[in-house]
């Protein structure tokens, strides 16, 4: 089953407004104004948000309240943004965070510092 085929939003009694999309690792994900990145991803069955630095372990939403930092992702190029605390925006670029995530532009190109 393709994971974008379903929607785990509860429909009852709610008008979420105008849907928009952002991208998750290049694929379009539907979201509604005010929704967190984590909620939108999970609504579409996307649950693996990052891989850890030390062991490459998959992680996703855990505490859901900003305390545990398990749901950190790369959002619009910035590493370690909590998906559970970040409101989705149209056109936002959300990516799985691998390890520490990407460096800012001014960072050393070699990445060789040790």
């Amino acid at each position: 089953m393709s994971k974008t085929d379903f929607d785990r939003r509860i429909a009852t009694g709610l008008d979420r407004g105008e849907a928009f999309t952002f991208t998750f690792d290049g694929m379009a994900v539907t979201a509604y104004p005010g929704e967190s990145v984590a909620a939108a991803l999970i609504a579409h069955g996307r649950r693996k948000f990052r891989e850890t630095l030390k062991r490459d372990m998959p992680r996703g939403l855990y505490c859901g309240m900003g305390v545990c930092w398990e749901c950190i992702m790369v959002i619009d190029g910035r590493a370690a943004v909590r998906a559970c605390m970040t409101v989705a925006e149209p056109g936002m670029k959300v990516e799985t965070q691998h390890g520490l995530g990407p460096s800012p532009n001014t960072a050393p190109t070699e990445g060789s510092a040790s």
Binding site: A80, L100, S103, P104, A107, A113
Partner: peptide, 27 residues
């Protein structure tokens, strides 16, 4: 700080103000 992607690759000290800066391998 929190572990971060690489933002610097040298140990930095300051001639005037006392300061040292470095980014570890773990970020």
């Amino acid at each position: 700080t929190e572990p971060a992607p690489r933002i610097m690759d040298k140990v930095v000290t300051h001639i005037g103000g006392i300061m040292s800066l470095k980014q570890h391998v773990n970020g």
